[in-house]
Write a protein that binds this DNA or RNA. Sequence first.
DNA 1: CAAAAAGATTGAATGAGTTCAATTTTTAAG
DNA 2: CTTAAAAATTGAACTCATTCAATCTTTTTG
Lengths: 208, 208
Amino acid sequence: MTGLRAKQKADRNRRILQAATDLFREVGYDSARIEDIAERAEVSVGTFYNYYQNKGDILVAAVSMEVEEVLAAGKTIVDNPPDTVGEALTVLIGQYYDHSLVYLSKEMWRTAMAISIQQPESPFSQRYTELDGRLCDQVSTLIAKLQLRGGVMPGIDATGAGQMFFNNLNMMFIEFVKDEAMALDTLKEIVARQNRPLATLISGPKIQ
Amino acid sequence: MTGLRAKQKADRNRRILQAATDLFREVGYDSARIEDIAERAEVSVGTFYNYYQNKGDILVAAVSMEVEEVLAAGKTIVDNPPDTVGEALTVLIGQYYDHSLVYLSKEMWRTAMAISIQQPESPFSQRYTELDGRLCDQVSTLIAKLQLRGGVMPGIDATGAGQMFFNNLNMMFIEFVKDEAMALDTLKEIVARQNRPLATLISGPKIQ
DNA sequence: CAAAAAGATTGAATGAGTTCAATTTTTAAG
DNA sequence: CTTAAAAATTGAACTCATTCAATCTTTTTG
């Protein structure tokens, strides 16, 4: 049997996640009370806690869905990247950044990141961390691909360099969500400047 | 008059910060109750909130004191650095990392970082962010200094490169405190590998 | 189909952070 | 020194996130 129980469970899970995401967007994370989320999802408070360990978990779940979309979009670029390192990084990172604010507010990002740092053992935080790792791999893969094509000097550690690019863009994204006033374009400019030394040098003497 | 009031205020402030730091170290951040901190500092709960906006603020205050020590220790190195970029970075970053766990546990770091991301407007979070900025400047200053000495190619953007080194070491420090099992040496090795491409390339052809 | 077992739901109770109106202490004015 | 104003302190009350024993629902067994 498919089981009535399993169906109800999936259904409730969906309703709770949807209710929470909507409420977070409407009133912000802090003002959204578990009681309200539960009411909107037509379950009790206790049931909410049967599906998610705590309030933060459900936000991280929502963010994880978002990151998965970003990963998928990034794959398109990595599969067929521009020729130069600078250009390829600009496009990939621009893609990441542009996508980041489509569904989530800076406040939601701040909270999700804070949770993934503070409670690294919770399942959804681990999921978030894992997704971060896949994003990092994506950047390294891009560098390795360009290296095969000759856009990056042989002998360069593509993995190490890729991790550095990723850690830099990730850290700057944290700065970005911490500062409500910072615009996406400003973020991109700053990161482009930071990337330039390494991006230029690993390209080899041709571009100099 | 110096004012009795001002003196009492400074005194209470010191007592509260001390009581909180001690308790965090003894029982961990989460288990330390405001009531207990207040009792140990011989003030009421309400008074605690007169001095600190919330529980997190006082942890960030404690962490900030720690970062200031790290900054001071770093200055010694930047004032008189080793000759090669790789060596200089290894020493400076090693210094940062070694100092980080002397007074603070990984749990305390996690909480402090989470707060500084989540409530970027609170005064103590801003202080933490400012200290981070000064650490970043310190790395950039190191690169610029080596550049003047000829250890870094002219034409390289020392500020951009320094920021990249810093963002990388900072992001990896976050990974480090998220993972209770990771040892300091492992952290240092990973960061050394990530730094190598940029560190080698900006040194110029001599070292190749 | 009945009854027992397993799995889920429920919401009142708990506990900790935070607030705020009343009170006390310090400073300034007369 | 007295009194009014300003500044701080206080702790009981409040708000939520979270828990858990009682209850209900679904599945399995005989």
